[in-house]
């Protein structure tokens, strides 16, 4: 069953007279509970695609259906709701608020969704424990290692219990061993918690090992769409 369906999606950036198509008439759909990796060179439109699906950016043309509802036509408030409840985002540069500790970073997302103070705290501590940070709850990001910081970001992405996790090169700033741990965590989220995962990565080989499907983009178009068999 499709959870996300992209139809003839176009995103054009304009710089003066010049038009740069970052996403060029893309169409594909994502099954609920699947792990989809998007690979491609820099500038192939991977991040733009993820931002469009995440509702951070709006398309120039085309549609993005989430559970059959076109988010391309949503108002800015509607997009905020989509980001708040439907998707959780993880970034290469972690994007935590450095003046706040791990717990506060995780609870902030729940502040926006109006969850009560006690519920926020209970839920955030549970999530931080799940990502293996029970002893780092009150540490600020600059007191954590890269891997730990990204775990906080994953806990935050899960805080409003979204169905979809959008991960934009989550291991890009990590050493290979830590990167492996983060990938394992995402796989666990997919397999045990049935989260649908869309992950951008440079490493096609690694992607093929863990994903159900790998899409390779080039100049905003799908160059290759590969279904991987034999993944648990």
């Amino acid at each position: 069953m499709d959870i996300i369906k992209v139809e003839k999606l176009v995103k054009i950036y304009r710089k003066g007279e010049i038009e740069i198509p970052a996403v060029d008439h893309l169409s594909f759909s994502v099954d609920k509970g699947s792990f989809l990796s998007i690979v491609g060179r820099s500038g192939s439109g991977k991040s733009t695609l993820l931002n469009l699906i995440g509702g951070l950016d709006t398309p120039t043309d085309g549609s993005i259906f989430f559970h059959g509802k076109n988010i391309a036509g949503l108002s800015r408030a509607g997009l905020a709701n989509h980001r708040r409840y439907n998707v959780g985002m993880i970034f290469q540069s972690f994007n935590l608020i450095y003046s706040r500790n791990a717990l506060e970073n995780v609870t902030l997302a729940m502040v926006f969704s109006g969850i009560s103070k006690n519920e926020r705290k209970v839920r955030a501590i549970r999530l931080l424990e799940e990502v293996g940070l029970s002893n780092r709850i009150y540490h600020k990001p600059d007191e954590l290692s890269g891997g730990e910081t990204q775990r906080v970001a994953i806990a935050r992405a899960l805080s409003n219990d979204p169905e979809v996790i959008l991960a934009d090169e989550p291991t890009g700033n990590l050493d290979s061993q830590t990167a492996e741990e983060i990938i394992d965590l995402l796989v666990k989220l997919n397999q045990l918690h049935h989260k649908t995962i869309l992950m951008i990565t440079h490493d096609q080989n690694a992607a093929e090992k863990i994903s159900h499907r790998v899409i390779r983009l080039l100049d905003g178009k799908i160059k290759e769409d590969k279904i991987i068999t034999g993944i648990l």
Partner: peptide, 12 residues
Amino acid sequence: GIMKAIGGSEKQ
């Protein structure tokens, strides 16, 4: 930007 990415609306 982070607050918006995690669901903060313009109003908030």
